[in-house]
């Protein structure tokens, strides 16, 4: 079942051609977007969110053209968590998560239930009244994720959610995304950490220079050949990935 569909998408910010003829269909489950820096992962997420208007190609949400939807209608369908998103004010955790309901048309009570669900899913209900500035990096990431979850959209776009987090926190974040994916949400997540991508992704899309290099289950995408082709890395005798020029 296709929830979000891209056909021959090309373009990027400021009329740069970062994405080159991308066609993809996304359904329920967790899709990891992987690839080197500058591959176009963030540009692809922003294009799907409508933050970047593509130069060519079409984006369809269900059976509707994305560009025909209003900002609010789009926000009711897709939630986006930017990479290292700023928080400009020392907002209380509950107030911040509540912002996730900005585009909702539901009652106050339903909004509050969605906020509580999101806070429970991210295990942050214990510090709902605390200002975000008093939290640790891992807690802060979970609060920002809860804001995106609170929107209860069928599609969730997440950009590098595990950046700068310790391994336990990384697994916590990925676990939350995985449970949403299992509940039928289409989660598309840009990731640099390949072991995490392999562990949690139902499907991986390997991007390089704005093009799709591989697309499929982790086992078929994360191969010695794809590492070598894209990152210039090879497995050494111990099984570690290494730059080929440094090997004896």
């Amino acid at each position: 079942m296709s929830m979000l569909s891209l056909k021959a998408i090309s373009g990027g910010p400021d009329h740069k051609r970062v994405l080159d003829n991308i066609s993809l269909d996304f359904g329920p489950g967790l899709t990891g977007l992987i690839g080197p820096n500058g591959a176009g992962k963030t540009t692809l997420l922003k294009t799907m969110m409508g933050l970047i208007v593509p130069e060519a190609g079409t984006l369809t949400l269900g059976n509707k053209d994305l560009s025909a939807l209003s900002l609010r209608q789009r926000a009711q369908q897709i939630a986006y968590l930017p990479q290292n998103g700023p928080v400009h004010w020392a907002m209380r955790v509950h107030d911040l998560v509540r912002l996730g309901r900005f585009a909702s048309t539901t009652t106050r009570q339903e909004d509050e239930m969605a906020v509580m669900d999101a806070m429970r899913a991210c295990a942050i209900e214990g510090f709902a009244a605390r200002p975000i500035t008093t939290l640790s990096g891992g807690e802060r990431s979970r609060v920002l994720l809860a804001r995106a979850l609170a929107a209860q959209t069928p599609i969730l776009l997440v950009d590098e959610p595990t950046n700068a987090l310790d391994p336990a926190q990384q697994h916590r974040i990925m676990g939350i995304l995985q449970s949403r994916a299992k509940a039928g949400v289409c989660v598309i997540c840009a990731l640099h950490d390949l072991p995490l991508a392999a562990r949690y992704g139902d499907r991986l899309v390997f991007l390089d220079k704005g093009q799709i290099k591989e697309d499929g289950p982790p086992g078929t995408v994360l191969t010695a050949t794809s590492f070598h082709k894209t990152y210039g890395l090879v497995f050494d005798k111990r099984g570690y990935l290494n730059d080929e020029s440094t090997l004896p």
Binding site: L51, A79, Y80, L81, V87, W89, L99, L144
Partner: peptide, 15 residues
């Protein structure tokens, strides 16, 4: 209030 999370997040939220 939404802009407190930055322009991109706010725009994605429908602002």
């Amino acid at each position: 209030n939404a802009l407190g999370l930055g322009e991109e997040a706010a725009h994605s939220m429908g602002v």
